[in-house]
């Protein structure tokens, strides 16, 4: 079936642009969420590490305030 192969899809087999847009938006949404999740969780980890370090040293507490 000639319509089935990538050539016809890339060459704009009928309405191919709609398909590309759908997958592009899907990929962008999930990609953005993944990046946000990873950075958010890393930032929190860093904050926790800093806080624990401060808790270990009492004089550091004063400077934090």
């Amino acid at each position: 079936m000639s319509e089935g192969d990538l050539g016809s899809l890339l060459g704009g087999g009928r309405h191919a642009a709609f398909v590309w847009w759908s997958y592009a938006i899907g990929a962008a949404t999930l990609g953005l969420l993944a990046i946000q999740s990873i950075f958010w969780s890393r930032r929190l980890k860093r904050q926790l590490a800093a806080l624990e370090a401060a808790q270990g040293a009492p004089e550091a507490q004063e400077t934090r305030r």
């Binding site: 079936m1 089935g4 990538l6 899809l9 009928r14 191919a16 398909v19 899907g26």
Partner: peptide, 21 residues
């Protein structure tokens, strides 16, 4: 979804949106 499967004879290529939707 995008290459190996056939296009729908009525909806043509747009049926491929279904595999994400």
């Amino acid at each position: 979804g995008l290459i190996a499967s056939p296009a729908d004879y009525q909806q043509h290529e747009t049926v491929r949106i279904m595999y994400l939707h």
